[in-house]
């Protein structure tokens, strides 16, 4: 199949970027979207041009590195799919495809489609953990956790940190990302202990990074490759309000 591309090219964070036109003639339906970009880059390199920089690594939907805004949607036209899992069979022969980096006030373009998501790490460093010492721990079966509780915690813990929730949010809010971790840990008995302090610190950092307010448009859960539910945001709100009213300690 043949496709036309309009790809965001930008030299660095300070410079202004623009959409540049490309076209590819020998795209196959079974190609993944990123393999299509590989193909383009091969052509560009041999022509002596700079290839398009884009984030990618595991190419199986779990590392959360890839994140492209494709045809006006985070991770492209399919719901619950990461960019690397998107295949060219989802596009029509002759179609024009727009590719832009994920945007958000707290995400900066590094070059072309590569972005800086270190803000997520900083949010996690404020409390996205259980403060257990490494090396020794109580017997794993000492505290029973019901099947449903564990499954539900897993649903929240499945976040891959790709940033699609921020990219698709009209407010650039990181509520889904932050709440998924808060909720994962709040749902487990071992994580409850410090849940109030955790939510306050993580939300504070989230705000500090410049992420926006959550308006509950629910767009994030549609675009999330792991289909993380917005009920995590409700839970974060609950934990936050509780902590605000009761205080973070005792």
């Amino acid at each position: 199949m043949k496709i036309k591309l309009k790809i965001w090219r930008q030299i660095n964070a300070e410079s202004k970027g623009k959409l540049v036109d490309y076209s590819l003639d020998n795209v196959e339906e079974d190609m993944s979207f990123l393999e299509m970009l590989d193909l383009l880059n091969e052509e560009l390199i041999l022509k002596g041009e700079r290839p398009v920089e884009f984030d990618h690594d595991c190419r199986e939907g779990i590392c959360g590195t890839c994140g492209l805004f494709i045809n006006g949607r985070a991770h492209g036209p399919l719901a619950g799919t990461s960019t690397c899992q998107l295949h060219m069979r989802s596009f029509k022969d002759g179609e024009t495809i727009y590719i832009e980096p994920f945007r958000g006030g707290a995400f900066n373009v590094i070059r072309d489609l590569k972005i800086d998501r270190s803000s997520f790490d900083r949010i996690m460093s404020k409390g996205g953990y259980i403060s257990t010492p490494v090396g020794d721990a109580p017997e794993a079966n000492a505290v029973p956790i019901t099947h449903d509780q564990a499954e539900s915690a897993f649903d929240s813990a499945a976040c891959i940190g790709c940033g699609a929730c921020v990219a698709t949010c009209k407010n650039g809010s990181a509520a889904l990302f932050t709440s998924a971790k808060i909720t994962h840990l709040a749902k487990l008995p071992q994580g409850k202990v410090e849940s109030r302090a955790r939510v306050l610190k993580m939300v504070e950092q989230m705000d500090e990074e410049g992420f926006g307010h959550c308006t509950n448009t629910l767009a994030c859960q549609v675009e999330c490759p792991q289909e993380i539910s917005v009920s995590n945001i409700d839970r974060m709100n609950w934990e936050y309000n509780k902590a605000k009213i009761l205080g973070k300690g005792d």
Binding site: K6, W8, L19, F69, N71, G72, R73, A74, A79, Y98, E100, R103, G104, G105, A106, F107, T168, C169, K170, N171, G172, S173, G210, F211, G212, H213, T215, N216, T217, L218, A219, V222, E223
Partner: peptide, 30 residues
Amino acid sequence: IITLKNKKSAGGGYAYDKRAKVSNWYSRNM
């Protein structure tokens, strides 16, 4: 205040934007 702050945190918007497909219009236009 919220709208102004959100505008900043949204990060400039996209050249080609079809995000309207994934949420209700009224939730985006409160």
